Amino acid sequence: MAQRALSTSIGFLLPPILRNEVGETRTVGIEVEFAGTSAEAAVRALHRTFGGTIIEEDPHAYQLMGSIIGDMSIELDSRMLHPGKRTKIGALPRIAAWCGFAASYIVPCELVTAPIPMDRLHEIDQVLTILRGIGAKGTQDAAFYAFGLHFNSEVPKQDAQTALAFLKSFVLLNAWLRREVAPDVTRDLLGFASPFPLGYVRMIAAPDYWPSMERFIDDYLAASPTRNRDLDLLPLLHHFDAQRVRALLPNEKINGRPTFHYRLPDARVSDAGWSIAPEWNRWVAVERLAADRDQLNALGSAFLAFSGEPKSWANVVERVALT
């Protein structure tokens, strides 16, 4: 029988705009990469605590549907290893499954939750506790790979100005975020969560840069035609205008959705003291600045006038981020 989920004692901050355009509590989907255990062992451990129904897609990809904390999927993080997810090379089921067993020693698993209300985010820490209990490993345990923690935060309003306000806020706080998050150097070397080009940052930081949706998308694609950003906006821009995005990126793996894809933090699953709360609370700092247009524009002007090192700018914006 499934046990009821209990909240943790770590404080999860709420964003200044908690409801979306139709008055519902905004949601956030979580992605956590880990190693040290199989997808099957992980989903069965979660099922014992949270209940629901296990669906096996293949020997290395599972879904847990209808659990008391929502739906989740767990799979080896490589599409080539899943026979049901056809690739251009047309991997056969038996070959893909066999390769999956071999790759399970070096390819991480990825847990993806369905969107959950932001005021229930604390429940995800219980998922991490269960994974830790069956031997799941995180970034600090890997020699050649760094595991990520991603937040897919629903936009409070689906328009260009809201999306741009968040992006402005993020790039202005980025030096502080990177200092606090301190992502593993491997992720930087592999380009998994690269910062935006400085020229683009300076363009969008300008207080008078509030373009139309069409220009916003075109400017973004010209400067950053890649998923490998610390704040990946391609899923959101694809949701806004799929044809415009696909015209430039016809083969990029993009699923359009009305969310910001924040992918800077590391996943440190095996660390007994690790919670996603501090990482989430730093994202809330981005949301707070994005919601304050006057402060956002003032900080943009200050950034354009600043000539010091990024670590010095981090000290400047720390007061803004922590208010």
Rank of each mutant, 00 (worst) to 15 (best):
residue 30 I to V: 15
residue 30 I to P: 00
residue 31 E to F: 12
residue 32 V to N: 08
residue 32 V to C: 14
residue 33 E to S: 08
residue 35 A to P: 00
residue 37 T to M: 12
residue 37 T to R: 14
residue 37 T to E: 05
residue 38 S to N: 12
residue 39 A to R: 05
residue 39 A to T: 12
residue 40 E to R: 15
residue 41 A to C: 09
residue 41 A to P: 13
residue 43 V to F: 06
residue 43 V to K: 04
residue 44 R to P: 06
residue 44 R to K: 15
residue 45 A to H: 10
residue 46 L to C: 10
residue 48 R to H: 03
residue 48 R to L: 12
residue 49 T to M: 09
residue 50 F to W: 08
residue 50 F to E: 01
residue 50 F to C: 01
residue 51 G to Y: 13
residue 52 G to N: 07
residue 52 G to V: 13
residue 52 G to I: 12
residue 52 G to R: 04
residue 54 I to V: 14
residue 54 I to E: 04
residue 55 I to R: 14
residue 55 I to W: 00
residue 56 E to V: 01
residue 56 E to I: 00
residue 56 E to D: 07
residue 57 E to H: 10
residue 58 D to M: 02
residue 58 D to S: 15
residue 59 P to H: 04
residue 59 P to W: 02
residue 59 P to G: 04
residue 59 P to Q: 05
residue 59 P to N: 08
residue 60 H to S: 09
residue 60 H to E: 02
residue 61 A to W: 04
residue 61 A to F: 07
residue 61 A to E: 02
residue 61 A to N: 10
residue 62 Y to T: 03
residue 62 Y to Q: 04
residue 64 L to V: 02
residue 64 L to I: 05
residue 66 G to H: 04
residue 66 G to Y: 08
residue 66 G to K: 07
residue 67 S to L: 05
residue 69 I to P: 10
residue 69 I to Y: 01
residue 70 G to H: 02
residue 71 D to K: 06
residue 71 D to V: 03
residue 72 M to K: 05
residue 73 S to K: 10
residue 74 I to F: 01
residue 75 E to S: 09
residue 76 L to G: 03
residue 76 L to E: 09
residue 77 D to M: 02
residue 77 D to I: 06
residue 77 D to L: 09
residue 77 D to H: 04
residue 78 S to M: 05
residue 78 S to K: 09
residue 78 S to P: 00
residue 79 R to D: 13
residue 79 R to E: 12
residue 79 R to K: 15
residue 79 R to S: 13
residue 80 M to Y: 07
residue 81 L to G: 08
residue 82 H to Y: 06
residue 83 P to Y: 11
residue 83 P to E: 09
residue 84 G to A: 08
residue 84 G to T: 13
residue 85 K to N: 08
residue 85 K to W: 13
residue 86 R to C: 00
residue 86 R to E: 10
residue 87 T to R: 10
residue 87 T to Q: 13
residue 88 K to T: 07
residue 89 I to N: 11
residue 89 I to F: 11
residue 89 I to E: 15
residue 89 I to H: 14
residue 90 G to P: 00
residue 90 G to H: 12
residue 91 A to M: 14
residue 92 L to I: 13
residue 93 P to K: 00
residue 93 P to E: 01
residue 94 R to K: 11
residue 94 R to E: 14
residue 95 I to P: 01
residue 95 I to Y: 04
residue 96 A to K: 00
residue 96 A to H: 00
residue 97 A to V: 06
residue 98 W to F: 10
residue 98 W to T: 14
residue 98 W to D: 11
residue 98 W to I: 13
residue 98 W to A: 15
residue 99 C to I: 00
residue 99 C to K: 07
residue 99 C to E: 13
residue 100 G to D: 01
residue 100 G to I: 07
residue 100 G to V: 05
residue 100 G to P: 00
residue 101 F to N: 07
residue 101 F to Y: 12
residue 102 A to I: 14
residue 102 A to C: 09
residue 103 A to Y: 03
residue 103 A to E: 06
residue 104 S to W: 05
residue 105 Y to L: 14
